[in-house]
Amino acid sequence: MELSPNGSFNLRRLHRKRVGLALAGVLFLATIFGIVVLVTLLVDVVVTSVPWLDGQFIASLPSRNPGEAGIQSALIGSLWLMGLTALISVPLGVASALYLEEYARDGWFLRLIQVNIANLAGVPSVVYGILGLALFVRFAALSNSLLAGALTLSLLILPIIIISTQEALRSIPSGIRESAYALGATRWQVIYSHVLPMAAPGIMTGVILALSRAIGETAPLILVGALTFVPFVPQGALDQFTALPIQIFNWTARPQDEFRGLAAAAIVVLMILLFTMNLTAILLRNYFESRRAGA
């Protein structure tokens, strides 16, 4: 949009439109780059896993012989971890969010906790592993048990659960609370009978996403001493364990092609688990939003 040398006003509209079109094309290519990588990754993993993925693989214990190896102990270990982590982190996270949203008054204490949670969400997972190693494995003498792993993962996903629960609570109109107060409900009655049920789908969405983060974590579990070879199925929370990501890590790190195939098969199982959880979360969110829109 500058004046051309002879002084006439030159819009150069064609040129500018072309530049704009080229930019739009570049932006589009960049955007689908991520999707293309995702598809490549999935196709590569699925194709590699095909010869290995069968019922025997799911139902067998690990073995030095790739032909007989399976993920039973890893899969059950991961489910144990997920259950224990949910039991610990969900009540703690929801309670924290309730305090911050419904009770705490604006002030330095609230701001301190909020800033702290935001920063915790950015702490590398391997650092949580170091914390778990020192605090749960050694200080609390839980050794390398499922419970030590679950406690570590709980601290790791706590900020995610708190933040998403706070968002769910914030989305409840204050009129709901005021109506309940007007009818003589106490503060806890308002929260327990009105706010929590209405926020439940939103909270559950956040919880599922947080748990799917936990189930894919590897580094913290290595730090707290998850074993790489567990030829038994854990029976209780104090048993030693392995988990799917640990098994995948162990098999990927071996140079032989057979073990790469096993790693791919275990990745497929893990990804199916994760996609199911993510899909549940997305469906819940859609249901939640459509119900909200209808109300």
């Binding site: 990754l41 974590e217 990501p245 995948i248 790469r260 990745i267 994760l274």
Partner: peptide
């Protein structure tokens, strides 16, 4: 949502 160990693979 892809776990980092899968990216490592």
């Amino acid at each position: 949502g892809v776990p980092t160990v899968v990216y490592g693979y």
